[in-house]
């Protein structure tokens, strides 16, 4: 019984010392942890991109660049078309410093 008590005391002391150290250690490296998207309640495009993110970051990266380029240029030309209806001269400007 006495040995058990000593053992329990040693275990609690160790735990008290080790747990904060473990927490601190994990805290500092939290950024390096691998993040996994939770796909359990997703569907459609959300599910597709979340799965891609979890399974193949390289393809997800390529998709990101493609989506940004397509959306950036698409919105750019669309807005250009809209702005051309404002009757403003959008093709020249005077340089004044």
């Amino acid at each position: 019984m006495k040995t058990f008590r000593y053992g329990l005391f040693a275990f609690i002391t160790m735990a008290c010392l080790m747990v904060p150290a473990l927490v601190l250690a994990s805290g500092a490296k939290a950024e390096a942890l691998i993040h996994v998207a939770d796909t359990r309640q997703l569907s459609g495009a959300y599910l597709y991109f979340a799965n891609l993110y979890n399974e193949n970051l390289l393809i997800f990266g390529v998709w990101t660049v493609v989506v940004i380029t397509a959306l950036g240029s698409g919105l750019g030309f669309f807005m250009d078309m809209l702005m051309s209806h404002t009757r403003l001269d959008l093709t020249s400007r005077e340089i004044r410093e």
């Binding site: 970051l57 660049v65 919105l75």
Partner: peptide, 28 residues
């Protein structure tokens, strides 16, 4: 930069799309 950050798994594509809708008007 977007490509390299994606490889690190730190990008939220949906948020980018939403922000770009506002940016398309703002940039003009």
């Amino acid at each position: 930069g977007a490509f390299t950050f994606t490889l690190k798994g730190r990008i939220e594509l949906i948020a980018v799309v939403v922000m770009l809708c506002g940016a398309s008007i703002g940039a003009q």
